[in-house]
Design a protein around this nucleic acid. Structure first.
Lengths: 107, 107
DNA sequence: CTGATGCATCAATACTTCTTGATGGGAGAA
DNA sequence: TTCTCCCATCAAGAAGTATTGATGCATCAG
């Protein structure tokens, strides 16, 4: 039987959202603060619908939030979500103990 | 033109490795320290070749290291790799500034 | 040696994600 | 109203990933 980790679905969706170069570039642009979609276009080497697709993935993962203003759409990093990811990765890292001196298997 | 982030390939591979529930369960098991593959079997609800596949993904991402001892293979979390991920996510989070008061687009 | 065990790898299939181009809707300009 | 702009969404095909069962290889036990 599988032991389910808390929020596994959300965690995996967030990590999946981070696992694409286009999306990392978008997030890098958003470091500077809220950006209009049209300001993000040149972060990618491809068309507008592709950018829109990747923004949706980031939004569905909760890593960014969006806001409408007239014809424009603005996106912002979600610091809380990033903080949760940071905490999770840190919790894995911090639990790494020394290697067992004499590991014994399957007993 | 695309501006390339440092180590984008490695970063995306690591995040992709984290974006699967099976692999998160495996990593959770490894918190306790080095584990033999046979000790990880019940972290998944499926066969041995599937476990082997997911361990390979984690290993190729550098998130775990493996060691052979006789018939057994032991896997361990790689604290350095996890630390790098933590740092990266933190660097995104810490650069989130306040929303621009009056964003102006495309000028 | 012979047989069993622990694990990796391969091939085939199923599934998911990515990418492109086309379409459409809402907002503003004329 | 009509035209244009910004953006989201859709459909279809391409590309990548997951899962299964079979096979192989090394190690150890008898």
């Amino acid at each position: 039987m599988i032991r389910t980790l808390p929020d596994t679905d959300l965690l995996t969706r967030r990590f999946k959202a981070l696992s694409d170069p286009h999306r990392l570039r978008i997030l890098d642009r958003l470091r500077g603060g809220e950006r209009c979609v049209c300001e993000l276009t040149d972060a990618l080497d491809a068309g507008q619908s592709l950018l829109s697709f990747h923004l949706k993935v980031l939004k569905d993962a909760g890593l960014v939030t969006d806001r409408r203003d007239g014809r424009w759409a603005y996106y912002t990093l979600d610091a809380a979500a990033l903080g949760e990811l940071e905490t999770f990765v840190g919790s894995l890292r911090r639990h790494v103990p020394e290697t067992r001196w004499a590991p014994v298997c399957c007993e």
